[in-house]
Design a protein around this nucleic acid. Structure first.
Lengths: 342, 342
DNA sequence: AGCAAAAATGACAGCGCTGTCAACACTGTT
DNA sequence: AACAGTGTTGACAGCGCTGTCATTTTTGCT
C-alpha cells in the first residue's frame, strides 16, 4: 500500500541506510547513487514516516507555532506560511495557542516543549518581544525564530525576522506630506506593543525630515481597536487644530476613524485623508478602501519557518537576521487636502 | 528526563504491557492494578510517546482538520475547539488548509489521508456539504465528522453536527416582527451555501407563521461579503417598498448594510433596524453593535472532535447527530420602527 | 603497481510503544 | 480433587526509521 524505506532500498539495490542518507541530505553518498535513489523515491512516491523518524532519531521533525494574538487574520496568515515551509521540508507543525498574560506562561510553554519534543518554535509578538520568556526558552534544547518589530535584533539568542515598521511608517507619512497635508495626526495602538513605538517614531521622523513640527495634540494614544479609532478621530476633529489627514497605527483603528469621520459628515478623502497599516482584510472592507502598508505575513512566516528548520539541521548561519519593510499601498482613502486642487 | 512506559512499569511493579493496557483503557485489568498504575503515571507525570504509539499500533492518534474557509475568525474558532478535544484525549491535530474549488481536490485529500495516516477528519462547509467528496473520502479507512447547516443529517456516512440555521433565522425574524416591523428585508449570502438556504427559509417561515406576506422585492440575493451588504441595502432603500428592518445573512453583510445606511443618512436603529448572523467579532466592531445570532463555534468544534475521537476508538453510537441552534443576541442595531413609540 | 587515507556503503541494534499469544491465577462445578 | 472456564498478566516480536561502527570501495600518492 504505502512504500517504506525498505521497498525503496530493494528497488534501488542499495541498503536501507543509504536511502536514509539520501533522504536526509547527508554527505558521503556518491552522486550516481544519490540520483538512483532519488529516482526510485520519485517512482514509488515514497515519503518517510514521520513517526518512525521522530522515534528513531535524536532529531525531531516537528516545530511549534506558539501564539497569542487576538487577530485571527494575522494568525491564519502566519500559520499558512509556516505550513508551507513545513510541507516542503517534511516537517510537522504543532499549533499551540495560549495566553501570554497568564502568570506561569513560561513554565507552560517549557512543559509543552519538553513534552512534545519539538525541534523549534516560531515566536510572534507578544512572545517574541518578551525578553525573559525568550531567554528562559532559549536555555532549552530547542531552536527559536522570532518575528518582531524593529530593524535590529535585540540579542543573539535566535535568528530574527525584523519587520521594519519604522521605515514603513515613514513612507506612509511621506505619502501624506507629498499630497500636501500640513496637519497630519497619528492614532497610536497599544503602548506596550513595539510596533506602536516603531510606527510612531517613523511618523515623527518623517515630519522632522520635512521640517514639520510635531504637535502632540495631533497624537492620540489609543489601542489596536475599532473603538479606539472612532474615539480618536472624534477627539481629533473636535480639537483646536483640525488635521487634514490621520495616520492610524493599524487598519482596524483606521476603519474606526473612517467610520467616525463619516458620522461627522466628512467626505473621505476630500475633507480628510485616512491611512491604515497592515493591509488586513479589514482595509478592503471599508469604503473607500484604505491606503495602508502591506505586510507580507504569509511570506514572512514561511521565511521564518525555513530559517528555523535550517537551524534544527545546523545548516545556515548562526543567527541570521531577515528584514521586511511593509510597502506603501495607496488606495482610495487618501488624497490631497481640499482646496489644493488635486 | 522524560518518563517512558518502562519507568512506569518498573515503579509500579508490573509489565510494560499492563501499563499499556491501563493507558488505553483496555479491559482485563484488575481494578487494584489499574489504580496502582494510574498512581504511578501521575507520580512520574508520564505521557505516552505519540510517535511510538503511531508507529507501533494499528490505530492512529491523530486527526486532521480539512478546511477552506475565507473567514479567519471561523477557522480559528474551529481550530481552537478541535485542539481542546485533542489535548484532552492525547491526540494530535494536523491542519490541512486547501482549496475546495481545485479540480482534483478529492484526490489531494485522499492522498493526504493515506500519507499522514490520520484516524479521522473534521469537515466543515464547504467540504461537509459536498456529497461526492464525502462519499469518496468515506470509502477510505478513515473516520469522519461533519459540521453542517440543517436539522437532519443527509445520510449515514458519518456522525454529523447540525447547526440549525433555520430555527435561528426564525428567532431573528420573530424578534423583528415582535418589535413591530412590517416590512422586513433579507440579504442572502452565497446561493451555493446551505446556510444561505436555511436562513432564508427560516426567514420565510417566520413571516408565514405570522401571516405576513413574502415580498420577493425585499429579498436580495448577494454573497457573504461587506460589499454585498453595502449594495444590498442601497438597492433595498431605493426600492418601491422601503423596509424598516433588514436581516442580513451574516455579520459581514450586516456591517456593509449598516455602513450603507449611514451613508444614506439613516439613524440606526431608529429609522432602520439591522440584524446580522454569527456573532463574529465583526458584529462588535460596528456602531451600533449588531443584533445577531450567536453560534458557539468553538464548542461545536470541540464536540465534533470528541465525537470523531470516540469513533476512532469504536466507542459511542454509530452515527450520532448533534444539534446546535444559534441563539438570538439582541444588541443595539434593532429597535421598534420609528413612530411606534418604543 | 602498491599502499595509506578518505570516501562510500552496509549490518545491526534499538527508539517506545502495541499486537499476538502463551502463561498463569483464580472461580465454580462435578 | 480434578476440571473447564474466565479473568489477568507478561514475554516477545516488530512498526519504520536513525545512530554507531565495521567493512568495502575509491582515491591520491609514491
Amino acid at each position: 500500500m504505502k512504500a517504506t524505506i525498505n521497498d525503496v532500498a530493494k528497488h534501488a539495490g542499495v541498503s536501507i541506510k543509504t536511502v536514509s542518507r539520501v533522504m536526509n541530505n547527508e554527505p558521503s553518498v556518491r552522486q550516481s547513487t544519490r540520483e538512483k535513489v532519488q529516482a526510485t523515491v520519485a517512482e514509488l512516491n515514497y515519503q518517510p514516516n514521520l513517526a518512525a523518524r521522530n522515534l528513531a532519531g535524536t532529531k525531531s521533525y516537528s516545530i511549534a507555532y506558539v501564539y497569542d494574538n487576538p487577530n485571527a487574520y494575522y494568525v491564519i496568515d502566519m500559520q499558512n506560511g509556516i505550513l508551507s515551509a513545513c510541507r516542503r521540508q517534511g516537517f510537522e507543525l504543532l499549533i499551540h495557542p495560549c495566553d501570554a498574560k497568564k502568570e506561569n506562561i513560561t513554565e507552560e510553554v517549557i512543559a509543552m516543549v519538553k513534552q512534545s519534543r519539538v525541534a523549534g518554535l516560531v515566536l510572534t509578538p507578544p512572545f517574541s518581544e518578551m525578553p525573559e520568556f525568550v531567554e528562559r526558552i532559549s536555555e532549552l534544547d530547542v531552536k527559536l525564530v522570532r518575528i518582531m518589530s524593529g530593524d535590529l535584533a535585540p540579542d543573539q539568542l535566535s535568528p530574527c525576522i525584523m519587520v521594519n515598521d519604522h521605515d514603513a511608517a515613514v513612507s506612509i507619512t511621506e505619502h501624506l506630506i507629498e499630497l500636501g497635508h500640513k496637519e497630519i495626526a497619528f492614532i497610536a495602538g497599544d503602548a506596550g506593543h513595539k510596533s506602536t513605538v516603531e510606527r510612531l517614531n517613523g511618523y515623527k521622523k518623517a515630519l522632522s525630515d520635512h521640517q514639520m513640527a510635531i504637535n502632540e495634540d495631533l497624537i492620540i494614544h489609543g489601542e489596536y481597536s475599532f473603538e479606539s479609532g472612532v474615539e480618536g478621530a472624534k477627539t481629533l476633529m473636535q480639537g483646536e487644530v483640525k488635521p487634514t489627514a490621520i495616520f492610524s497605527c493599524n487598519d482596524e483603528i483606521a476603519a474606526g476613524a473612517l467610520f467616525s469621520a463619516r458620522l461627522m459628515g466628512l467626505d473621505i478623502p476630500r475633507e480628510l485623508s485616512i491611512a491604515g497599516f497592515e493591509n488586513s482584510p479589514f482595509s478592503r472592507q471599508t469604503w473607500p478602501k484604505l491606503t495602508t502598508a502591506h505586510q507580507p505575513n504569509e511570506q514572512i512566516a514561511e521565511n521564518a519557518a525555513n530559517l528555523l528548520i535550517a537551524q534544527t539541521r545546523n545548516q545556515g548561519e548562526a543567527n541570521p537576521v531577515g528584514q521586511y519593510t511593509p510597502q506603501l499601498l495607496v488606495r482610495d482613502s487618501t488624497s490631497s487636502p481640499a482646496g489644493t486642487g488635486t
